[in-house]
Write a protein that binds this DNA or RNA. Structure first.
Lengths: 317, 317
DNA sequence: AGCCCCTATTTGTCCTAGACAAAAAACACT
DNA sequence: AGTGTTTTTTGTCTAGGACAAATAGGGGCT
């Protein structure tokens, strides 16, 4: 009634699972099991869609569909931690060549070839490993190549623009869970590198966080106002390696003061590696750290709520 | 042999026509008529894919599929001009309310609602009318609202970010034709507004131009080098209304000198409305002007080549 | 143990052909 | 010319079957 039931196309949009797959699963595994509308067309109730989202997220983390769909009921929630199978040396070596090939495409100004290569890898590996094994190392290499003079400015721009597009497309399909934090993502003025932000957004969204992307170069005051307006739990900033390090602490200090105490401030990206640190800011130099921090946040929140519940049900001494 | 034949999934990616539609057309209209590989799966030859792209482009301009598919053969080429049915007053009035509703969603910080509204309109109207009737006026209104103080900075950022995403997703699927210009799209340093660029890219790509998106804020020198490296025919710049007008002529003059004479320089966006003009630059204040200029370029080029052919076949006097 | 090859299972995509609803066009009637 | 009604056009949905690519499991080898 209040939840109007989803058509198969809507579920495809919301979960990223193709219509074929949805029908196949129903046939093979008995889930999902949508009801039918007056035309005999599938009508998925909201809770099944939610479970599908969760399954998709676990698949992107390397789980296999057969297991997940056979799984009794809400045992899914317990599976979350299996975090990216260990990136083996062998796989890393293979990728090495692949990465070089992709960079070569950029050097040849073959935009279409590069886009296809990206999309192929995204489809093959799933978003999480795509971000960690492809986009992150590529970005780093392009940065190095640019410093060495092997890349022209416009080649770096082309790389950024095309990579952005593929990432955004993938991120667009991701859902957000309940009990997960609302994360506001942006960069400070003078920091216009957006790829790091997109990588974080992808990984956070995979975990189920509700991401609010504000693009780059937000004045600090505006970041604070936006965080309140959007009721964000976390403000995440990204500093690229190119950003002048000594400016970072000042920015963070000021922003920390503008933000309400309840809103956490997380900082990541290559630029925060060795900058001076403040205690009131969560530093996450690596992508992995971000994911861990997010999981920690969720656990902590669950703990808090549990504690609060206990307190409220127990009689006062 | 040299052209490896496309799978139905590849055609879906390249043309933006769903698998269902491709199979349906084959059944109903007898086109496309792919051969089959050893597994009995459709294998589309390159020329059919090309024709499908052309058909899709014409559909996005308002033509109906039935006509296009019944059309004899290469009569398609003659159809190009039917350029957006006249946007009637009535329709404009209806949209007026729709636009306000969408802005309200942004004011409420309802990112998902806004995204859905955008995507729904894109699907309903096709890309061309979506750009001209939705994105362009929305952008203008947001600009006005921001100046009036009705929009906060972060609300404008959110609007830009979300709109960008939908546009990019739509543009990603567009093909590029032969005999069409290669257009390099970017902005000068200090101009970071990207929506205008994306709108132009969408319309140009609809016409079949090969667009090379370099993002924003390219140093002039780099624009010139990129134009040569990519063998661009046209460099297109966008200046938003917020860009200081008196700086524009200087930028253009300098860039014009850096560019080889064979490469045209086109300029558009709200900022060029009343700035001083140079004779060597093509000014296109409105989106329509850009499309017209592109068509003119194609005609001119066809004329040139015809003339050259005549000269080379005629005996010297 | 660790490694490699072969087989078995899992899983996604593709196939056919039919049905129907929503949008657009054509027509009729003020 | 405008407005309401039919007819045509067009896209999406459904069903179950088939098959190839990817992955896991098992056995023999070093």
């Amino acid at each position: 009634m209040s939840t109007p039931n989803f058509s198969i196309a809507a579920v495809e949009r919301d979960t990223g699972l193709s219509k074929d797959v949805l029908r196949m699963w129903e046939r093979r595994y008995g889930f999902p099991q949508p009801s039918r509308d007056t035309n005999g067309e599938r009508a998925y109730p909201a809770d099944q869609v939610e479970r599908l989202r969760q399954i998709k997220r676990l698949m992107d983390q390397g789980h296999r569909p057969g297991k997940l769909l056979a799984l009794p009921a809400e045992a899914l929630a317990g599976l979350v931690p299996r975090h990216g199978r260990p990136p083996r040396r062998a796989a890393a070596a293979v990728d090495e060549q692949g990465l070089e090939d992709m960079l070569a495409l950029i050097k040849q100004h073959d935009a279409n070839g590069y886009l296809q290569a990206l999309q192929q890898r995204l489809a093959r590996q799933g978003l999480q490993r795509f971000v960690q094994d492809i986009v992150a190392p590529l970005t780093q290499r392009v940065g190095e190549a640019w410093e060495d003079g092997r890349f022209e400015v416009f080649e770096e721009h082309l790389f950024t623009e095309l990579t952005k597009r593929v990432m955004r497309q993938a991120v667009a399909a991701l859902p957000s869970g309940v009990g997960m934090p609302r994360v506001l993502l942006t960069t400070v003025p003078d920091e216009q590198h957006v790829l790091g932000l997109l990588m974080v957004e992808a990984l956070f969204a995979l975990e189920g966080a509700a991401c609010i992307p504000l693009g780059t170069q937000m004045p600090l005051m505006e970041i604070a106002r936006a965080a309140e307006a959007h009721r964000a739990d976390i403000v995440a900033l990204s500093f690229s390696i190119a950003f002048p390090r000594k400016l970072i602490p000042a920015h963070l200090e000021q922003l920390r003061q503008l933000l309400p105490a309840g809103i956490e401030l997380w900082v990541g990206g290559g630029g925060v590696g060795r900058s001076a640190r403040l205690s009131s800011v969560n530093y996450l130099p690596d992508l992995d750290d971000g994911v861990k921090a997010l999981n920690a946040w969720v656990s902590a929140k669950a703990g808090n709520e549990l504690a609060r519940e206990c307190r409220s049900t127990e009689p006062k001494p």
